[in-house]
């Protein structure tokens, strides 16, 4: 009895996967399992009723409050509405808001900035996250300190960390300028947020500093469920550390990396707080992102219809990205990912 699950874990771990570790282990865990068991275990009976019952509380919590606002957003996106008041004139414009969005040079520029921000920050966070996750998993003498240190930036609310970076990078009295000058690395104080490109990169640094923690902790959790036998077996075979990492650990981390990738992509594409606090989209709109633009359109300019259309486009893009990631990463190249 007591042994009933332990061998299971091992048999899963040691399973056919080890024969072809490069993509095998991820395959069975993500895609093949549900498929396989749909025949053996799941096919015994359909459980739509029970599923609905179990999903009901979540559905109430999630959709109870936001259904009307979301429907209103959809409705707004097909109208021209310039005031929040219920009595305000409304003009049906069909798809005009969406058509405008595709020809709006400001929005196109903002999309470019957002894509750049999303790609660079997410990639950096995943790479650093995987490395730091590995480091945190080591048996170190002051591991708690390492873990606390990596967590700290994450615990700092974005509004605070963005204000902090704005100050640290200040061109006149910023400590980073002071440090680099006093160390002789730069000759004189620099205007880090002064040009569009530099400002965008500084925002990315601030974002990576804060959000690498999430990636690192998810990787740590992911490592926790990787059966050690796999790695140990490889180690006995004499596989080098680097090769072991790429051929065994990384594929096994795939589900976790997917989670992080999807979460960070969603958050990055919606990025608002950090940009708004650090640069307000400047200089000369060089760090304007789509969420900041949607905010300005809907709130500052009270162009609610167009702002709603932009917001919906953001949702669509993020949703497509999420689906693409999930498919890409869950199939692992072996299965068609038929979920």
């Amino acid at each position: 009895m007591t042994d009933s699950t332990a061998p299971t874990t091992q048999s899963r771990a040691g399973a056919p996967a080890s024969a072809n570790p490069s993509h095998g282990p991820a395959g069975p865990r993500k895609a093949s399992y549900p498929k396989r068991f749909r025949h053996t275990y799941g096919s015994s009976r359909r459980s739509g009723g029970l599923a609905a019952l179990l999903l009901l509380p979540a559905a109430v919590v999630v959709f109870g409050l936001v259904t009307y606002p979301v429907l209103r957003t959809v409705w707004l996106s097909f109208n021209r509405v310039l005031s929040p008041m219920p009595t305000a004139p409304v003009q049906m414009v069909g798809f005009q808001n969406f058509i405008n969005a595709f020809t709006d040079s400001d929005l196109i520029a903002a999309t470019g900035h957002t894509i750049y921000f999303t790609l660079v920050s997410t990639a950096a966070e995943i790479v650093f996250g995987v490395l730091l996750g590995q480091l945190m998993a080591q048996k170190l003498r002051f591991r708690w300190l390492l873990r606390a240190a990596i967590l700290m930036p994450w615990a700092l609310p974005t509004v605070v960390s963005a204000s902090m970076w704005r100050y640290l990078l200040n061109a006149d009295y910023g400590p980073i300028n002071a440090l680099l000058t006093q160390l002789g690395i730069i000759g004189s104080y620099r205007s880090w947020l002064g040009t569009p490109t530099s400002a965008m990169n500084m925002i990315i640094i601030a974002d990576v500093w804060k959000n690498t923690s999430i990636a690192a902790f998810f990787v740590l959790a992911g490592l926790a469920v990787i059966p050690n036998e796999l790695r140990e077996a490889a180690s006995v075979d004499g596989a080098g550390a680097v090769r072991r990492f790429f051929s065994i650990t990384l594929p096994l981390l795939r589900p976790v990396i997917m989670v992080v990738l999807v979460l960070r992509t969603i958050e990055a594409f919606k990025v608002f707080d950090i940009v708004y606090v650090m640069t307000r989209g400047g200089p000369s709109n060089g760090t304007q992102t789509v969420a900041v633009y949607a905010y300005q359109t809907a709130f500052s300019n009270q162009n609610f219809g167009y702002g709603s259309a932009i917001a919906l486009l953001i949702v669509v893009v993020v949703l497509l990205l999420a689906v693409a990631y999930i498919r890409m990463l869950s199939t692992g190249g072996t299965s068609d990912g038929g979920r």
Partner: peptide, 12 residues
């Protein structure tokens, strides 16, 4: 003019 003016608000 201080070139950082283009990133400065009243408080700066």
């Amino acid at each position: 003019t201080n070139p950082s003016s283009t990133q400065s608000l009243e408080d700066d």
